[in-house]
């Protein structure tokens, strides 16, 4: 799947910008956390206890945001060697088939993550040291994969 190289439609900018800004904040915080934990521990003997727990939560949110961005930029890796050799109508049918496959599995993943989010507290799912709840992270994964499914479909419809 190559990125549609032509015009960057305005709606894409509107979807992309808030995701990039939130994701950037998360990744730079992750960087700062990792750096300052190491520094405080080595030079001042004052490590941030449970820094790993915060990192786990930050990572889950950052990845959830990165999924739709990856889909929108056409970076879902696929092998097009064989499809490229087929006649155009066949290519189109196959493209629809694999798009539907992707939309279905990502939507279902989104739904599953959403139900997991509702149950996370009842299974006592939390980080080990600080017991930060995993519920919000499940919601993030649900939103990220749901948006990915939607974008996959929209991109196909626009092609």
């Amino acid at each position: 799947m190559e990125a549609p190289a032509q015009h960057q439609a305005a709606w894409r900018r509107w979807v992309e910008a808030p995701l990039v800004i939130c994701g950037a904040a998360l990744i730079f915080i992750l960087m700062g956390l990792s750096f300052s934990d190491a520094l405080l521990r080595s030079l001042f003997n004052k490590p941030i206890f449970g820094a790993n727990d915060y990192a786990q939560i930050l990572l889950s949110f950052a990845i959830a945001i990165s999924f739709p961005l990856c889909v929108m930029s056409g970076r879902l890796i696929a092998i097009d060697t064989i499809t490229d050799m087929m006649p155009a109508p066949v290519q189109k049918i196959l493209d629809w088939l694999v798009t539907i496959m992707g939309v279905v599995i990502l939507s279902y993943l989104s739904w599953r993550a959403f139900s997991n989010a509702l149950e996370a507290a009842s299974f006592g799912e939390s980080t080990l040291l600080l017991q930060l709840p995993f519920g919000p992270s499940y919601y993030a994964v649900a939103a990220g994969s749901g948006l990915s499914a939607l974008l996959l479909l929209v991109e196909r419809l626009l092609r």
Binding site: I27, L30, M31, S34, N52, A55, Q56, I57, L58, L59, S60, A62, I63, A64, S66, Y108, L109, R112, A113, S115, N116, F134, S137, Y138, V141, S145
Partner: peptide, 26 residues
């Protein structure tokens, strides 16, 4: 299968050691 799907995805995106991927990319 349903729990394996979401459970494995979640177990992957919360691995502390994998923070090196976004940070080295950054």
């Amino acid at each position: 299968a349903a729990f394996t799907l979401s459970g494995q995805v979640f177990a992957t995106v919360t691995v502390y050691e994998l923070t090196i991927i976004p940070l080295f990319i950054l």
